[in-house]
Design a protein around this nucleic acid. Structure first.
Length: 561
RNA sequence: GUCCCUGUAGCUCAGUAGGAUAGAGCAGCCGCCUCCUAAGCGGCAGGUCGCAGGUUCGACUCCUGCCAGGGACGCCA
């Protein structure tokens, strides 16, 4: 529909150029918007307002000339000029309803596109270190990151989901000492409990399994406990695998799976950190000061230079970060998106500066970042801060167990990443119309229910008859659904391009609302076969789009509630 | 002090690469199940889009300054 209007306008412009009304060298980007107000038709363009100045005409005058020059089309019932010079298009009834046939034909593929042209994209998200269960923040990252991946896949990109973690740093040693302390029967209140040790109850479980000689299998490693409480290295290896497994189970329960687990330690083992240092030094962007080696990141937009090699000879975290992103680039990812908590904001400039200093032909804005703000969890209006298991924070597992996977995913991905999120447990678990997840799912179930009823009454859906009567979908409520359905593909594309999964959630809420309104206004199971079938077709098309959209969010589309 | 994010109805939030009279849900009030699932629908009420300037035919949207909240500013990751 949009394409039709665009091409009509394009030929009108060409005609006016021919007549000398518009200058020949004029290039116009034609923008068609769906209208907010039905009185303005179905689609509108501001073209005459945009071109008024270069054309040297008043906007409304130009609009007159444009509409006069529009070729005839079956798709358009009429056009109007309104306000300061908008051109409104009223779609012919059957033209708008044609979307129903498109959706039914395309099925699961409706809304998918090839704009990505198979380009490789890597999305790094969650990237939690294996020192504890995943918390709500990781959950938000998982929901947003995975939804982004699904959006990119749906728009024709080849996506790699990657999880980066450190299995060897100071925090991991701290983890090992904590487990060891538990294995020796100590608790956080004992005098010899390690300083800053992990106090959560899960450490007790790790220690128990270690002493019992258990074997744990995570997605990317398997370790059998050695059982000796004095062997810190063995404890560390076991603890890392144990927590990796726990995180894997949480992610699985959340419906998120990764293609690659990338170890920070591998960057050292494969000499990539040293290579990076050498390149930075060769390029003359480093200097020694105060016993440390610095990178002159201020040459690349940072507000101060950064230490890359500490006085004690070790590297700061920022260096392996740069090496890691160089490795991403070398693996052929021209587009990389890092989904992280906003508390990592400071790394953005630094990593980008480091990559520029490599002089490896990496573009300035590489990589992309999607940073999400904090999540606050509330119950009965009061903030929940603790979980027994983790000690100091609410875990993702707590939420999944309590409100379910669908609600958790929807709630965490339905808000813009850059606004702070209040996760209201009472709302998420309420089986009522307050709950947006159920609102959308219910619309889907309602269509299923109609079809079951049709089946039971031996009035099974007849596709051919529906197609022959598309023009009967002419009530305001039906037209609202049709227009909404037609917008789905561009919503997907826009959400993918702007990296904003919440647009899909918002769309689904709108579509479900349009459908519920329609359901109450227009009876579907009528005796007239033609009417019944075409209305069923609209329901089926709606169900298809709801299903496709929910799938993009990783949320199920139940057949009954 | 510097940088980033946010500020829209009593509450939680949308607002689609500036477009027409700023939307939805909840909370409040009034209605709708002899009828396809009422986990639903309709209506009423509720706003100087933080404040002040600027750009534009047109600004919630872009620019500048200020105010408020959050985050980051480590030889921690």
């Amino acid at each position: 529909m949009k394409e039709t209007i665009t091409s009509l306008l394009q030929s009108a412009i060409d005609a006016l150029k021919h007549q000398g009304v518009l200058p020949d060298d004029l290039t116009a980007t034609i923008k068609i918007d769906p209208t907010k107000d039905k009185a303005h038709g179905d689609y509108a363009t501001n073209l005459a307002l945009m071109l008024a100045k270069p054309a040297g005409l008043k906007p409304r005058e130009l609009a007159e000339k444009l509409t006069a020059a529009l070729p005839e089309s079956d798709a358009i019932a009429k056009t109007e000029i309104a306000g300061p010079g908008f051109i409104n298009f009223f779609a012919a009834a059957d033209a708008a309803a044609q979307i129903v046939a498109n959706i039914l034909d395309a099925g699961d593929a409706f809304g998918r596109s090839l704009v990505g042209q198979g380009e490789k994209v890597q999305v790094e998200f969650v990237s939690a270190n294996p020192t504890g269960p995943l918390h709500v923040g990781h959950g938000r990252g998982a929901a947003i990151g995975d939804c982004l991946c699904r959006l990119l896949e749906a728009t024709g990109f080849e996506v790699t989901r990657e999880f980066y973690y450190n299995d060897a740093g100071a925090q991991i040693q701290n983890l090992a000492r904590s487990v060891q302390a538990r294995a020796k029967g100590l608790g956080p209140d004992d005098a010899s409990w390690p300083e800053d040790g992990y106090r959560g109850d899960y450490i007790i479980d790790v220690a128990k399994d270690y002493l019992a000689g258990k074997t744990v299998t995570a997605d990317d490693r398997e370790v059998t406990a050695q059982g000796d409480a004095d062997d810190l290295d063995a404890i560390q290896a076991f603890a890392v695998a144990w927590l990796r497994r726990e995180q894997d189970l949480d992610l699985k329960a959340f419906g998120v799976a990764f293609d690659v687990y990338f170890l920070e330690s591998s960057l050292y083992e494969q000499g990539k950190v040293e290579d990076t240092v050498a390149r930075l030094t060769q390029n003359g962007h480093t200097y020694e000061d105060d016993g440390a080696m610095w990178l002159r990141t201020t040459d690349f937009g940072d507000d101060k230079d950064r230490v890359m090699r500490k006085r004690d000879g070790g590297y700061t975290y920022f260096l392996p970060d740069v090496a890691y992103h160089l490795d991403k680039w070398n693996r052929g990812f021209k587009t990389v998106i890092n989904e992280q908590g906003a508390d990592h904001h400071s790394t953005v400039t630094r990593v980008r500066a480091g990559l520029q200093a490599l002089e490896a032909g990496i573009p300035k804005g590489y990589p992309d970042y999607v940073l999400h703000q904090m999540v606050m969890v509330t119950r009965s209006g009061v903030e929940v801060k603790l979980s027994k298991r983790a000690g100091s924070y609410v875990t993702l597992r707590d939420l999944i167990d309590e409100v379910g996977r669908d609600a958790t995913r929807f709630f965490l991905a339905a808000r813009r990443a850059d606004s702070q999120l209040t996760f209201d447990i009472d709302l998420a678990r309420s089986q009522s119309n307050d709950n947006p997840v159920y609102y959308v799912q219910y619309a889907h179930a309602r269509v299923c229910s109609m079809l079951r009823k049709a089946e039971a009454e031996s009035r099974a859906f007849d596709y051919t008859q529906a197609l022959a009567n598309l023009a009967s979908l002419d009530s305001d409520q039906e037209k609202a659904v049709l227009n909404r359905l037609a917008r789905y593909p561009e919503v997907v594309e826009q959400a993918a391009r702007s990296r904003e999964p919440q647009q899909v959630a918002q769309y689904l809420l709108d579509l479900a609302g349009d459908f519920h309104t329609c359901y109450n206004a227009v009876k579907v199971m009528v005796d007239d076969d033609a009417l019944r079938n075409v209305r069923l077709a609209l329901g089926i098309a709606t169900r298809q789009v709801l299903r496709n959209g929910l799938d993009l969010m990783g949320v199920s589309a139940p057949e009954e509630m």
